[in-house]
């Protein structure tokens, strides 16, 4: 922070303090034996035990992760296919139309996505629950993957593909040996984005979840409305650790990718 004056540093410090205050606050009181978020009485791990004893909550956590992983894998596959498809379209007009359609779900407010999906699922007769939540998470993750992969495809010189084809590679070989390795950083970035979007989503899930199935956000919402329980604090502390781990993992993967890209794209 050398180049910033004292005032600037103080300002940045304040921004960071406010940004992290709620998280620190939650984690701090998760160790409070007093049972409230008012006064800190004594250190305890009681709430962590409560989280691990709460089978219902654990199942919900598991649900959340299964949905996140499945939806990001499937949306990555559809998204990569979509990006390749858009890239191959020669006509500028068609390409722009496809891109605009792609971005509709990114700019739409969650409430609209949720409400319209609720109508859609009721119309085609999909029961609200696991399937509907999974389908909607796939749906809103696909455009993000496309946007992450497309720039990589555009970066790729078409001579690479021509060279591979000249050397006798078939369409499948060109795809798996040339195209996919080249756009791998984009695919990873898209996958991670889809994962975080899915883990973080509340509004869309809230609309299409029905009564039997629940993800973490929806569960926290209904618990927070009933009042404060410190087991939620304990849970958030655990989730915070997990998020940090994910971010660090993502950071290193992207660092390695950019480094290997510089070296000549062979990992």
């Amino acid at each position: 922070m050398q180049t910033n004056g004292k005032l600037g540093s103080v300002y940045l410090f304040l921004v960071f303090a406010v940004l992290y205050a709620p998280i620190v606050y939650l984690i701090y009181y998760s160790f409070n034996s007093g049972g409230t978020m008012r006064e800190f009485e004594g250190f305890t791990l009681e709430w962590y035990q409560e989280v691990f004893a709460d089978t219902r909550l654990l199942i919900i956590v598991l649900n959340t992760f299964v949905i996140a992983l499945l939806s990001s894998v499937i949306s990555t596959i559809i998204g990569v296919a979509g990006a390749i498809a858009i890239d191959k379209v020669r006509r500028r007009r068609t390409q722009n139309t496809l891109l605009s359609l792609n971005n509709v779900l990114i700019v739409s407010p969650d409430v609209i996505i949720g409400a319209s999906f609720l109508i859609l699922f009721t119309m085609i007769g999909i029961k609200l629950g696991f399937t509907s939540v999974l389908l909607s998470h796939i749906a809103f993750s696909v455009p993000i993957v496309v946007l992450m992969v497309l720039p990589k495809l555009r970066e790729m010189s078409s001579t690479l593909i021509d060279a591979a084809a000249d050397l006798g590679a078939g369409t499948w070989q060109v795809l798996t040996k040339v195209v996919l390795p080249f756009i791998k950083p984009g695919i990873f970035a898209g996958f991670f984005m889809a994962l975080t979007y899915s883990l973080d989503d509340f509004a869309v899930t809230f609309f299409v979840t029905g009564s039997g199935f629940s993800t973490l956000s929806v569960e926290i919402y209904s618990r927070a409305r009933q009042g404060v329980s410190l087991s939620i604090n304990a849970l958030s502390a655990l989730l915070f650790l997990l998020t940090v781990a994910l971010v660090v993992g993502y950071y290193f993967i992207s660092q390695r990718n950019s480094r290997s890209a510089e070296r000549g794209m062979r990992p």
């Binding site: 709620p22 998280i23 973490l216 927070a224 958030s236 915070f240 998020t243």
Partner: peptide, 10 residues
């Protein structure tokens, strides 16, 4: 990247 609900809850 931390769940929105958790922060609101905080």
């Amino acid at each position: 990247w931390i769940n929105l609900l958790l922060k609101t809850y905080a």
